[in-house]
Write a protein that binds this DNA or RNA. Structure first.
Lengths: 236, 236
DNA sequence: ATAAATGATTTGTATGACAAATGACCCTGA
DNA sequence: TCAGGGTCATTTGTCATACAAATCATTTAT
């Protein structure tokens, strides 16, 4: 059987399909899935491929499988919420307001601390990465280029902390930024609005001023939250 | 073929073995793995099982696989560092000092903020969970019971934030606590030392005092970091 | 009535075959 | 000599089938 869209591998497509169903709420937690053979034929793939997909979903914490009992959707608290796919699936439909709030809260917790740590421990190469991302933001001629550079900037800051655990939180920041652009920036006339604030973050990291870096990052996030809030008030 | 230790499933054991090799540094990033058939026979499992294991490792970001080229170990920056298994594998050998520092840094960033959020948004049931964990710590007669209740306490706080993204960071806190007990508490005469500090956290959450909760949590973590530091100084 | 044995169902594992992709090589032509 | 294209070999991707292992439900024996 052949599909055309999505990842090039069959099991990847099955992962997408089932993952979206589960995270999207079509399959409630605790609910039992059809047995492998039935599910495989229903999705028109071999049992081999289906099982590889199930293993992936299991490592994301979405399902649980025991012999004879079959597979069940796990409770939400076991989901690997920081997984890039899980985050993306949650945003597949228009993200709910409270999910956006949670993303922003994560940014408020993580990114100021990360900026401070970067200011303390960054090396010259990492600083250059931040600088390059900032330059790209400055040079961006359209929203897409801006958005891409913005994401790069925040990733560079996370990497510059030299704490790879913080680095792995990039999936969350990335999703938050994507949602932000989706919900607000498309309607904002001047997308370069936050450039000075990014410069403040960059400058504090360059000058090795942890507190200033954290403050600047806080200001940046706070502003973006306000933008989201006004946008949200306008929406209905 | 049959193995006796580890997870009950064969592919789970293969995941463990390969994962530990990669994270442990036996297989360097960029290095190519043997082709599936060879690797399968070398590990004495069928190709089916091996492939399921490889898919799991791929979702953890440890390996990358393309047709004809084969499999390669991915660069460290792509590893899903927040994954419980990856964290555990990093601690499989005695964890290095700088890794412990990174774990503590994560705690310092996440847990005070989580305590504050819990103080703001917890409901009564979630408070009861925190209380129950605290009571269990108080009632603990030996180190194992204490450690288990301690982990429960910190999990309960994370859950009480009502932000499941924060909740998914439990894997990190859990690993940090396990490492802490491994490195320090086993040698500490009075393992109940931090009980009052835990009470302060609980009380602030109960009274809905975000700042007090964050401060209490900061003090708790700061103390445990000091304990690690003195322990470390003694070690050589 | 309780406990052990049995059977049925579902996942777990093994094997062999073929499809698809892609890097390497060769071969031709300017 | 170099550029271009085409063939081939190698490796992962997919499929189908068979059997092993675990476990829930029922039945049977004491």
């Amino acid at each position: 059987m052949a599909r055309t869209t999505g990842p090039r591998n069959l099991h990847g497509q099955v992962v997408q399909e089932l993952g979206q169903m589960i995270v999207g709420g079509n399959l409630a937690p605790g609910e039992a899935l059809p047995r492998e053979e039935a599910l495989a034929t229903r999705m028109a793939v071999s049992r081999t491929v289906l099982r590889e997909a199930l293993k992936v979903l299991a490592t994301k914490g979405l399902i649980e499988t025991r012999q004879k009992t079959g597979m069940r959707v796990r409770e939400v608290r076991f989901w690997n919420q920081l997984d890039a796919d899980v985050l993306a699936w949650r945003c597949a439909a228009m993200p709910t307001d409270d999910f956006v709030d949670k993303l922003v809260e994560m940014r408020e917790i993580v990114e100021p601390a990360a900026a401070a740590a970067a200011a303390r421990r960054r090396d010259d190469i990492q600083l250059a990465e931040v600088a390059a991302a900032y330059e790209a933001m400055d040079a961006a001629m359209d929203l897409d280029a801006w958005a891409e550079a913005d994401v790069r900037f925040h990733e560079a800051v996370l990497r510059a902390t030299n704490n790879e655990l913080l680095g792995s939180l990039f999936s969350v920041i990335q999703t938050a930024l994507a949602t932000y652009f989706l919900m607000s920036a498309r309607t904002t006339a001047n997308f370069r609005y936050s450039l000075p604030q990014h410069h403040a973050v960059y400058d504090a990291i360059r000058r090795r001023r942890p507190n200033a870096a954290a403050d600047a990052m806080r200001g940046l996030i706070s502003d973006s939250r306000d933008t989201l809030k006004t946008r949200r008030a306008v929406k209905p």
